[in-house]
Design a protein around this nucleic acid. Structure first.
Lengths: 345, 345
DNA sequence: TTAATTCCCGGGATCGTTCCCGGCATCGCT
DNA sequence: AGCGATGCCGGGAACGATCCCGGGAATTAA
């Protein structure tokens, strides 16, 4: 009564072989209806739970998915929820590991999960990561792996991502339409794809409106609030300071906002601000910060679907890339109701 | 070259038995230093990774910890990071499952992990959960389980929690010291321990200052922003409206803030506000909202330590309960610099 | 009556690893 | 020379399940 019941216990007390019990469990056709009932009844009584380990060992699959994320902020936590949603539905359990944006931690985590614990990976790479050997090792083992959110050209794998270029474009075009002339961008680290794509969108919007990009207004800084704060201070101290800032994350937008308030400038009048991610926070601030919304939950679901597809599909899927569309949410920080007085300059 | 290398492959090519190779791997004393070297060299070359499944099957432990959380908001994500920190150090991998505050989902998750995937659990129960049979099933299997953050008297298990009573006391006393006279509390669901304890602290503070609690000022509402918003509207429409509100979470504080602003009241002058959790958000709002900080990361670490202790300690530890201290962070929402004019009423 | 078919079931190998047990040298000691 | 001690290694069972193969009994067909 101490140890959990096994298939053998059932076989013994019923005077059957383990094979028969096993078949009865899986409702195989070639077993007598009576014995089937007996097995079911006894397994119910003994509260029998099949040992997943033994099963996994035998058929060489664990039905676990390793999910590697750089952190668990609002956006990623939402995506993970999306992954969880469809994974559970498909009979998979997810193992979430956060790398804390640390390269070393990312390696440790993948190795741990790689030790025959998972059937494959769904990853979003850390911003620190510049070399991808640990992920390539996954692929060498022929394990399915899909990347999401933060995809990179250095890693050939099926993936799902936001149309970050479009997001950058929407934000920038909106600022232009609101009459802002000198629009700065706080971009992230140069090796991060999402950062570069949003920057591309920014440049594309400028080009469309025939605005010459000013290198002084393009800042690459680390992906957090403090750096954004410092970078914004510098921007505002320029002799020809920008009259609008587009930050590629809401965290950075908040850092920028703090610097702007400190300087005594008013949004949206003196300066416009648009962020990215549309975290719930930004609607609560005064003024509310405009932000590019991404369908995080949906993106997570697509990632998991893609993973399951990859599992069942033997061919090469590394070219597959789903792209979801962002949508700008406009708030007070960038809304000069009607572009009036813009020519008073 | 296709399949991953096993201990047998090494044994075969080296003309050894699997037993010897196994011993060599684990650096057992009774194996020749030469053979040991040879084994090591070959296993390096073949990129041998021991099969965790086989190992787990043999020794009946997986070195996985199942972590069940109601969601992954700021506080819980931080706690999970803390758990991860010490778990990894101790050679454990954590499997995080979110129940989305849903009772049913919680059951599904525990059952999944229970299928011989984890050695034990670290759980924070969903706010919806009123019956704990699924958790008791864990204990019947003699699996270690520790609870954290949301502990409940209905579940006898070692745990770590915040001194919520003290937190409620600190918040309320602070409001009293600031000269507020009619202090309302937005508490959570009645079956939630953390909610009741914070309420106890509130009552204790009132008692200390000989203020008679007013039942009309004690509101139980659901644990989210929207409900807090509605409840606050009602509070503010009372004929003798409160002049301060203590909410037991920051989400609720934000809901309250929205209602307050809508009503045209000014903080801290017309009304004081204190939240709970000290999420980064609250310092960014205008005015900044005072909030009771909890050492979430530390709490997660303690939970994991407790778990590991429980693993290695055979005796009953269900009486163990660690309690961490919160600390109020005061901001503009409740700070009437010097209690002047308070008697002008 | 005999052969063929169907229905149920058991035997044993297998997955990758550990671990108990026992065997065969070699060495040292009396 | 004979004995035990020691060092090093192999054999095989075990963990809990699946699955191929084969076999006996009963039923049916020839």
């Amino acid at each position: 009564m101490d140890k959990p019941a096994t298939i053998k216990d059932i076989a013994r007390t019923l005077n059957l072989s383990t094979s028969t019990v096993s078949r009865a469990m899986r409702n195989a056709p070639d077993v007598n209806i009576e014995t089937k009932k007996a097995v079911m009844a006894l397994s119910e009584e003994l509260n029998y739970q099949p040992n997943k380990l033994a099963l996994s060992l035998k058929q060489k699959q664990t039905h676990n998915i390793g999910v590697i994320v750089p952190n668990l902020d609002y956006v990623l936590a939402t995506m993970v929820r999306g992954i969880d949603e469809v994974a559970l539905e498909a009979g998979y359990t997810v193992m979430v590991c956060q790398s804390n944006e640390s390269f070393g931690r990312e390696i440790v985590n993948t190795r741990r999960l790689l030790d025959s614990l998972v059937d494959g990976f769904i990853v979003s790479v850390s911003s620190e990561t510049k070399v991808f050997d640990h992920f390539k090792k996954i692929q060498e083992k022929k394990m399915p792996m899909v990347v999401f959110d933060r995809v990179t050209p250095f890693l050939k794998a099926p993936g799902v991502r936001l149309d970050n270029t479009d997001g950058g474009f929407q934000a920038t075009e909106h600022l232009i339409e609101q009459g802002y002339k000198r629009i700065a961008i706080l971009a992230g680290p140069k090796n991060l794809g999402i950062s570069n794509h949003r920057l591309d969108g920014y440049l594309a919007a400028l080009k469309k409106y025939k605005i010459k990009p000013d290198p002084d207004l393009i800042i690459h800084c680390d992906f957090n609030q403090q750096y954004a704060y410092l970078a914004t201070q510098e921007l505002l101290n320029m002799k020809k300071r920008p009259d609008a800032i587009f930050t590629i994350s809401d965290r950075m937008a908040i850092g920028a906002m703090l610097a702007i308030k400190e300087k005594g400038l008013k949004m949206p009048h003196d300066i416009g601000l648009v962020g990215f991610n549309n975290e719930p926070v930004v609607s609560l601030l005064t003024p509310g910060i405009s932000s590019v919304d991404q369908p995080a939950f949906e993106l997570g679901k697509v990632a998991a679907k893609l993973f399951i597809e990859t599992m069942h599909h033997d061919g090469d899927m590394s070219e597959v890339e789903e792209v979801l569309k962002p949508k700008l949410h406009i708030r007070e920080s960038s809304l000069r109701i009607i572009p009036k007085n813009t020519r008073s300059k």
